[in-house]
Design a protein around this nucleic acid. Sequence first.
DNA 1: GTTGATACGCAACCAAACGTTGCAGGAGGC
DNA 2: GCCTCCTGCAACGTTTGGTTGCGTATCAAC
Lengths: 115, 115
Amino acid sequence: MTTSVDDDLWSAVGDPTRRRMLDLLLEQGAGTATSLSERLPVTRQAIAKHLVVLDRVGLVHGTTAGRERRYEVDDEQLERAVAQLNAVGSAWDARLARIKRIAEAIAANKTNEKE
Amino acid sequence: MTTSVDDDLWSAVGDPTRRRMLDLLLEQGAGTATSLSERLPVTRQAIAKHLVVLDRVGLVHGTTAGRERRYEVDDEQLERAVAQLNAVGSAWDARLARIKRIAEAIAANKTNEKE
DNA sequence: GTTGATACGCAACCAAACGTTGCAGGAGGC
DNA sequence: GCCTCCTGCAACGTTTGGTTGCGTATCAAC
């Protein structure tokens, strides 16, 4: 039951560019707006805006080191996001399973009623 | 590895309103733009547009019955969407698990160098 | 210290997406 | 016939993802 609190995390993770940014950050351990933009098909400024979004929901946090601003994934928050993905997935799976059971029951019933 | 093909399904499911529409359709078996809009905080026209989006990626399909247009969830396609949610989730989980292992190894073995 | 490259932040601008209001038209019930 | 309900379409506003352009701060080299 998608509570409205989830929506911030969902919309953060819903964007394909942000998902790939998280992939890269996990792969490399950390990254800057510039380093990420070199491996993604968007400009540094677009990446920077996405980093702000991800920072706001706590999925990454950045530290300034000299002229660089380095971002890392927040493990706990990402786990929370994964948990919500799984929650929605399994909720739908449960619904689908129930629908199938009902469909089978109806099919059995109809064959009984017929003739 | 988030192929670009996934993005259509993701962005369809990424919108909170569309997620709730799918919830309602699963709960009620089927629904029209009007019936859905009565249980969601947006207008019928907004719902109608979302239904077009969901139809385009195959998550629902609609049939015209008299003056109503009834939409139902496409079970197979929704299962595919769920599979993709789970795929991303477990990929991140695997990364996080690996990072934790490495962190523990580093804690035990003090000699390490950055790439 | 001056110069030059690098990394960043900010502002203006564009296009697409989500949402609204308003209106015309087809299907059912009286 | 008439009236109601459901739908579809068009115009409009706001937010969001993306761009370009410019100013500024840091590091390295001279």
